[in-house]
Nucleic acid binder design. Structure first.
Lengths: 204, 204, 204, 204
DNA sequence: CATGAATGAGTTTTCATTCAT
DNA sequence: TATGAATGAAAACTCATTCAT
């Protein structure tokens, strides 16, 4: 390895894995604050302060507040999609597939609690661009497919897949809220109990 | 019954049942807009305009924006409590009790869709006064009691009652979201399917 | 004294001496509040409330806020003029005349502390109509005349009469402030000491 | 002295002595307007306009209107204190000390007429913070001490020092008012006549 | 590129005044 | 005549965004 390649490899490692650029700092700060205080309730200078950058700097990376929240939404959805969609194994019994997805969701909630809370927030529709909504639809599509397949195999109860998907998603959010409101962390016990319980909603 | 008494009884019915005062108009407009655009995203003059009153008039009825949203929250919670808590029959098998509550919730969502959507919104905690939170706790307490009793009778699954309550509530909100996002009305079929499905989460 | 004259004298006593009409109540309330909180700092509905009348009632008696403060100013100046100007004895030695005026001023301050404080306030010029200013000038004219005569008799020091008048008036206001800021009432001792001291400013 | 050092010394003189920052411009505009129209009677946008800044800019320098008026009050009191307190010579005959103070007061009134008028205004108590009042007390304390010492030396008349101080201060304000109302400038003659006259109030 | 002081449009709130009762 | 609820213009204050440095 010569000097040249070393320099290169360092650059490659640095950037994608743990890119502590200003852009990331801004997104992190925005996530933090939007979850804590709502999109409309958060002032841009506050985002700048928490990100440790000047107020004007935000506008070098994002055209305006709406562009910022869209970028943030997409980053969060992409995080989630990366964990769930791409790792769902094919061809397993539905119960196994469900377990996989449920674990993925709960891992996400535990490892990225703010991203998770942000995605649950209402009223994204007020500012989301079509492209951002597309991110959401990819995940919904996956859920829809899994349920449809489960029903085809006779392993899941009959009914409109989108409805079952919303019931499950709702219960998942309920689980997170339960932990949050009690000020408790999401324990393995809670996750397992909830998984078992929620599966009953889906089971044929 | 003579003319006199008829007139009187009309007057009596009219006033308390459907008193269209400005206060009510303001609360209705606020409900409308807060659901549509968020609390922080709604400007007071817009509330005034939709209520058909002058901007200053709001402040004759509510000390400030926060007092308005608190009053609104309490009105909505009281509406819900009136429908659910006070009509839950005692001593029935848990499945019946659950049916009763589920019907009450869905009737509320259908008859007062905005109140229902408002109560589901996040971030109430940012402005709610302790007294307003008390309204929420009354309903939670009821759910907790029903589940505890169901478990004691061996008719509901074991587990922390608050967790089960949040799972059920989450699924209920999922049902409403499902209908809302599809632009569909909540049909009896959807309600029944969801009820059946959600009960499985609770069943022993 | 017959019935007729009794009725008359009662009427005469009642009306002018202690006429508790709404107009008077409004003026009293305004005096109260203007002294306490400034003209600009006082809201009309507050005046109404303290006067025990409806907000609209004020406008039956006074065209607007400015007319109210002008009427109040004139009433206070007239009170003062009544006590001072009309009772100054003529032809006495200047020291006696001064004593008379000083007593009159201090009696006014003690019996009508709010009227007294109101007249001392600055910034009357912003709203006073010419007619109201005329009231002020009558008193100044009197002071001017007394000093001019005192100087002519060789009993008062030489110098522009208006200047001496302002020095004396200033010292008088200083006396009132002294009492007010110490939270004390204006005692005879303070008044006498001040009179003696202030006379030295005038003495030839 | 070479070019280099000259440039430097100019820069040094310019910056600290007469730093025309926005903060100063805002304070100056506020002083101007508060004297002209009262604190309550002055709208913030008007202050901004006269200061030549945007309305929002004021709030970068002062938390709110009350903080602005407090800062202004302290600046004026500090100006006055700098001139009076720190330059009062010790150990002189009372008549000399009084002359010194009187000159200081009149110089202040001539060189800073608005600051002088502002400090004389009533109703500062409605918005002044304790810290601001402290500034006022320092000057009062000085007056009190001078009088007490003068009495001890048998050069000033007996009587409560605070009362004599208020009489003198009142007469001083009377002098300023006299000039102001006549639309005249404060002449040396007026100052000297007044000094002579006022001293008589103090003299033993 | 980065900054943060500056801004004015927009927000919440107040208040002199009106007017239906 | 008296009222006080209602109003909208104007006040205090905030904040997304710009731009000189």
């Amino acid at each position: 390895m010569n000097n040249h390649s070393v320099t290169k490899s360092i650059a490659l490692e640095k950037a994608p894995v743990n890119e502590p650029t200003k852009r990331t700092a801004i997104l992190d700060a925005a996530l933090n604050l939007f979850v804590e205080r709502t999109y409309d309730g958060t002032a841009m200078p506050l985002v700048a302060e928490r990100a440790g950058v000047g107020a004007g700097t935000i506008y070098r990376y994002f055209e305006n507040k709406e562009a910022l929240v869209n970028a943030l939404y997409r980053r969060c959805q992409a995080d989630l999609a990366y964990r769930i969609i791409d790792s769902v194994p094919l061809g397993l019994p539905s119960r196994h597939t469900f377990h996989h997805i449920w674990q993925g969701l709960c891992d996400f909630a535990r490892e990225e609690p703010e991203a998770s809370a942000f995605l649950e927030m209402h009223h994204h529709d007020l500012y989301l661009e079509p492209e951002s909504l597309e991110y959401r639809n990819r995940i919904r599509k996956m859920a829809y497919d899994v349920i449809t397949e489960g029903q085809a195999k006779g392993e899941m109860r009959a009914g409109p897949p989108f409805l079952l998907a919303f019931l499950v998603t709702g219960a998942y959010i309920g689980l997170l809220k339960a932990a949050r409101e009690r000020g408790e962390v999401l324990t393995d016990d809670m996750i397992t109990l909830a998984e078992d319980s929620v599966w009953k909603m889906l089971e044929a």
